[in-house]
Structure formats: structure tokens, C-alpha cells
């Protein structure tokens, strides 16, 4: 029996090392850009990092990222000027676009269609409206130089808060990240069953959203939106929401229209896409076609407002 355990132990080590080697050699794992807590009390990516992200197994999506000096994934450095025409898109991981080559982002797709504009993409995972408005407020000088702002939000997940609080971006079990094999297994969901077992024992359980009895959920989200816009006032001519109207409660759209808040809606174009996939394999982020559809809507909106010149 002892020799069995010995053999299992030795084989496990050897197999682990072999798989680690294979995963590294074939670059199946994702490089995850590191975080730090910046002066404006926001967790940002450590500036000037390069690497590759991998989505799904077998490297089905493999893309290069470049974190610029401001800490965002972009081929631009973010230096807005009085003379130039700059547009900022703030949003979540869909805008950050680690699942796409940084030189083929949504902003880049729009830039290719419209001359004389630069698009700065301020995207981080789960970067909700409170994060976006706080970032703009804490970097007012910089954003005052930006000519137009697009706030990408997903209803209702980006309206769950009515005030900003710093989000912890530290990795759970960071020591595991030293093994590329474990990173890969985490990424493809192979560790999920273990996580679920731990969750059943109440370890690391996700907090639930408080439910206020006096408000319906949707009116709570609208109230959050109102609060945030009151706290961080914006010139309505200078910004627009980027939303997906599919599955959104109409009261949200009614509110935007009532308040004359402009919005770019990419929902109908996704609907028209029919069976053609707009998301990645094993992942809900947009694929190249999905990004093209979003870029087209932005381009259409900007052209309609005479921003930039059609090429």
C-alpha cells in the first residue's frame, strides 16, 4: 500500500510538471495584467504591461494586450489636447477588450471609419456607472479636454450602486497564479466544481444585493442612476450612454428619453444578426463581429452628430 501512495505521489509531481511545461510551451494560459490602487482611489492596471490573453481551451481565442501609461488596454497613449478631437468610451471588460488584439478594438474600428478623431477606451472588468463617474470626477482636468464621452453600461448590473466605493481587485489565491497550469484550469472552469463545493460551505460566498421593500427593483436602479447623475453632473450635450436595449425594462428607456439623455443602442443590430454568433466561444464577450456591430452603431451616432468625418 505504501508503495502505491509513493508511486501516486511521484507520478502526480511528474505529471504536474509535464503539464505545466506543455501549458507554458503552447501558451494556453492567460497573462493577467496586474492591478494596483492608484492615487484616485481606483484599482488600475499597472502601466506599461504587455502580454496575451487566452479565452477558452485549445487557445480558441488568443489576443495581445498592451496596457498604456494610463493603465488601460489601448494602442493609444491618453493625452487629450485642446486642438485634437478625442472621444472617451468608459465601460467594462467589453470595452477593455482583453479578448481582442489591442490594435483591433472597438475604438480602432470606429477610428478607421471616421477621420480626425481619437478614441480612448477606459475599460475595466465590472466597471459600473459609479466607477465611471468617479474616474471622470477624479480626473476632471483630463476629461475636460476630451470632446465627447460615451458611457457603456449594462442594465441593470451597472446600476446596482448609487455611490462609489473602491472595488478590491486583488486576486483570490494569488499564489496559484504562479502555476500556468492552474491559471489555465481556472480559466476553462475546471476548478469551478471545487469552488462550488467550497461555496456550499459558505466559503467566499458572493454578497447578495440588498432588497428594499419600498421600491421595485427597476425603480431602485433608476433611483441609483438619478443619484449618480446628480452627484456627478455632466453636460448632456457632451455625453451619451451605450446600451443594449434587448431585455431592458422599458422604464429605463422611458427615463432616458424623459431626461433627454442620449443613448446609442446596439441591441437592434445584434437582434438582426440572427443566428450569426456575436460572442466568443466559451465566453460571453463580443467576438470580432459583435465588436464590429457595436462600432458601427457608435460610428453612425457620431456621424449623425457631425463628429468626425466619414472616410
Amino acid at each position: 500500500m505504501i508503495s502505491l501512495f509513493k508511486k501516486i505521489f511521484i507520478y502526480s509531481i511528474l505529471i504536474f510538471l509535464t503539464l505545466e511545461l506543455l501549458v507554458r510551451a503552447l501558451h494556453l494560459y492567460s497573462d493577467v495584467p496586474k492591478w494596483y490602487l492608484a492615487e484616485d482611489n481606483i484599482y488600475k492596471r499597472v502601466p506599461s504591461q504587455n502580454g496575451y490573453t487566452v479565452y477558452g481551451n485549445r487557445r480558441q481565442v488568443f489576443s495581445e494586450y498592451r496596457i498604456n501609461k494610463a493603465g488601460y488596454n489601448s494602442y493609444h497613449e491618453f493625452n487629450p489636447t485642446e486642438q485634437g478631437f478625442e472621444i472617451a468610451i468608459l465601460g467594462d471588460s467589453f470595452i477593455e477588450g482583453l479578448h481582442q488584439d489591442y490594435y483591433n478594438s472597438i475604438g480602432r474600428k470606429v477610428e478607421r471609419k471616421l477621420a480626425n478623431i481619437k478614441i480612448y477606451e477606459y475599460g475595466y472588468p465590472e466597471f459600473d456607472l459609479a466607477d465611471q463617474l468617479h474616474l471622470m470626477a477624479r480626473n476632471k482636468k483630463l476629461f475636460d479636454l476630451v470632446d465627447f464621452i460615451i458611457l457603456e453600461i449594462k442594465y441593470p448590473v451597472d446600476l446596482l450602486r448609487n455611490e462609489y466605493a473602491v472595488k478590491d481587485r486583488e486576486l483570490a489565491l494569488p499564489f496559484l497564479r504562479h502555476s500556468k497550469l492552474l491559471v489555465y484550469m481556472l480559466d476553462i472552469g475546471m476548478i469551478d466544481p471545487i469552488k462550488n463545493v467550497l461555496r456550499n460551505f459558505d466559503i467566499g460566498q458572493e454578497p447578495t444585493i440588498p432588497n428594499r421593500s419600498d421600491l421595485t427593483k427597476d425603480s431602485l436602479y433608476i433611483a441609483n442612476l438619478e443619484n449618480l447623475l446628480a452627484k456627478y453632473p455632466l453636460d448632456k450635450k457632451q455625453w451619451s450612454f451605450l446600451i443594449d436595449s434587448r431585455g431592458v425594462n422599458p422604464i429605463f428607456i422611458d427615463f432616458l428619453e424623459k431626461e433627454n439623455i442620449e443613448y446609442i443602442d446596439y441591441g437592434p443590430s445584434f437582434k438582426k444578426a440572427g443566428n450569426r454568433p456575436t460572442t466568443l466561444v466559451f465566453d460571453r464577450h463580443w467576438n470580432d463581429y459583435g465588436r464590429t456591430l457595436v462600432a458601427r452603431q457608435i460610428e453612425k451616432y457620431l456621424s449623425g452628430r457631425q463628429i468626425g468625418n466619414n472616410l
Binding site: 511528474l14 509535464t18 503539464l19 494556453l28 485549445r58 476553462i188 472552469g189 466559451f282
Partner: peptide, 19 residues
């Protein structure tokens, strides 16, 4: 034998689908 074990386990990693 060891190579085969490694290949088998590696292929499981390549084709595992959590979805």
C-alpha cells in the same frame, strides 16, 4: 507509458468544457 498518461491528461485539459 508515462508519455501516454501525460498526453491523456493533457487532452482532457484541452477538451474540457465547463459550459
Amino acid at each position: 507509458r508515462f508519455i501516454i498518461y501525460a498526453v491523456v491528461l493533457f487532452t482532457i485539459l484541452l477538451f474540457y468544457d465547463s459550459g
